[in-house]
Write a protein that binds this DNA or RNA. Structure first.
Lengths: 166, 166
DNA sequence: TATTGTTATACTCTATAACTATA
DNA sequence: TATAGTTATAGAGTATAACAATA
């Protein structure tokens, strides 16, 4: 925490954070929640991201690397370790004998559900600190922000893509 | 991205994310901005966190590890690598000959300022997507959320602590 | 004895470069 | 030739356990 941007501005005196600082700290808090839930199941954020992507996709290694913004070799290692733990499976592509499809194994599906459920509990508990009207307002504003941002960056925010299109 | 919690709920049909999903994705976007600015200066998030903490503190290794929630040995390695790059300095404590104080070197101070400045630019550009009233509302809600959360978790949100108390 | 910090070691995660096998 | 994936290798980051110096 505490990246305190600017170099210029002094820390605030009141009990209100700067918008930038607030969003930065909130991001650390929220990803910290995810990390703690993951650690409770002895798994890393990288593995959680992998399993999260595979929840609604069965991509090739190549697509997987692109989605996670990793080098192909990093994806190989990530999938290797997940496969060794029985969380994912490699399957041959029927249309391209060079390609390898990656899918969730049952263990992986239950694990990601558990972690995601715990994470949701944590975030909802955090939101419960606000009165209902504020909670709704925050949720709306965050959505609005993301929708415009995602549109400009070619991100599919609601990515539930066609499993098996190969 | 896409951790999509729950296992229960289906993805939304409208153009509004669930509150949990929205906050999670927003967190990834914001920390991604920080990571990209850091990478532009060829430095990691871990190093940025270290330098960020040292902006307004000169802690012992022990305190540093506690603040960053790392094992002492991890802090040793982190500071080793930062020191090798001339970003921080180790200094002896005058009151406890076992202890080692860690402080920013000039290079470290200019580097963290640059990264933090760029990050601030990015986040402000993101916030500019909202009309001013919404922007203010979001900022207020985020602050409010953090203040209550921090109070309950013993986190000093406005940490500008006494440099040199040893 | 307890605490501070480092070292030795091991594992995960990431990237670059070189390689194999398909296309 | 170009693409998909793996392997070899290197470095950062983290943790546990053992250790030296000091309190």
């Amino acid at each position: 925490m505490a990246v305190r941007p600017g170099g210029a501005a002094a820390p605030p005196l009141s009990s209100e954070l700067s918008p930038v600082d607030g969003l930065a700290q909130l991001s650390f808090v929220i990803l910290g929640m995810l990390e703690r839930r993951a650690a409770a199941d002895d798994i890393s954020i990288a593995q959680i991201r992998l399993l999260g992507v595979l929840r609604d996709r069965t991509p090739t290694m190549n697509e997987l690397a692109r989605i996670l913004r990793l080098d192909k070799s990093s994806a190989t290692g990530l999938v290797d370790r997940a496969e060794r733990r029985g969380l994912v499976r490699r399957m041959p592509s029927v249309t391209d004998r060079r390609a390898v499809l990656v899918g969730l194994a049952d263990n992986g599906r239950s694990l990601i559900s558990e972690v995601a459920g715990g994470f949701e509990t944590d975030v909802l508990a955090l939101l419960d600190r606000l009165p209902p009207r504020d909670r709704q307002a925050l949720s709306r504003l965050v959505s609005q922000l993301l929708v415009t941002y995602a549109a400009d960056h070619g991100i599919d925010l609601f990515a539930t893509s066609d499993p098996e299109s190969r």
